[in-house]
Simulated assay, not measured.
Amino acid sequence: MVKQVRAARTRQSLVRAAAEVFAADGYALASLPVISRRAGVSAGALHFHFASKDALAAEVESAAADWVRELAERCREENGARLQLLMRTMSGLLLAVAGDPVVRAGFRLGADPSRKSGAAMLGLWHRCVRELVLQAQSAGELAEGVCPDGVTATVVAATVGLEMAAAMAAAADGAVDGVTAGAIGGAMGAAQDGVRDGAEGGAADGVRAGAAGGAVDGVRAGAGGGAVDGGWLPAGLVEQFWSLVLPGLAASPERALEWMPPRT
Rank of each mutant, 00 (worst) to 15 (best):
M1N: 11
M1K: 11
K3I: 09
Q4D: 11
V5P: 02
T10S: 08
S13W: 04
L14F: 05
L14A: 06
L14M: 07
E20Q: 14
V21G: 06
F22E: 05
F22R: 07
G26L: 13
G26Y: 13
L32P: 07
L32R: 10
V34F: 10
R37M: 12
G40C: 14
V41N: 07
V41D: 05
S42Q: 02
A45N: 01
L46V: 05
L46F: 05
F50E: 00
A51L: 03
A51R: 07
S52N: 03
S52K: 03
S52Y: 03
K53T: 02
D54L: 00
A58W: 03
E59M: 01
V60Y: 02
V60H: 01
V60F: 02
E61V: 01
A63C: 04
A63H: 04
A64M: 04
D66P: 01
W67Q: 06
W67P: 03
V68W: 00
R69Q: 09
R69M: 08
L71V: 13
L71F: 10
A72Q: 07
E73P: 06
L85M: 15
L85T: 13
L86G: 09
R88E: 15
T89C: 15
M90N: 14
S91A: 15
L93A: 15
V97Q: 11
V97W: 10
A98Y: 07
G99C: 09
V102F: 04
V103A: 01
R104M: 04
G106F: 02
G110R: 00
P113Y: 00
R115G: 00
K116S: 03
S117W: 00
A119Y: 02
L122P: 01
L124G: 03
C128G: 09
V129K: 07
V129Q: 07
E131T: 12
E131S: 13
L132R: 09
A136L: 06
A139F: 11
G140C: 12
E141K: 11
E141S: 11
L142S: 08
E144Y: 09
P148C: 05
D149F: 04
T152K: 02
V156H: 00
A157S: 05
A158N: 02
G161T: 01
G161Y: 01
L162W: 02
M164G: 06
A172L: 13
A172T: 14
A175T: 14
A175V: 15
A175F: 14
V176W: 13
A181G: 15
A181T: 15
A183C: 15
G185Q: 15
G186L: 15
A187D: 11
A187Y: 12
G189P: 11
A191W: 08
Q192F: 13
D197C: 14
A199I: 07
A204I: 07
G210C: 08
A211E: 08
G213L: 13
G213I: 07
G214N: 08
A221N: 08
A221E: 08
G224M: 10
G225K: 12
V228W: 03
G230C: 04
W232A: 12
L233T: 12
L233R: 11
A235I: 06
A235N: 06
V238F: 10
V238S: 08
Q240K: 09
W242Y: 10
L244W: 14
V245E: 08
L246I: 10
P247T: 12
P247D: 11
A250L: 06
A251N: 11
P253S: 09
P253T: 09
M260D: 02
P261T: 06
P261I: 04
R263T: 10
R263P: 06
R263C: 08
T264D: 04
T264F: 05
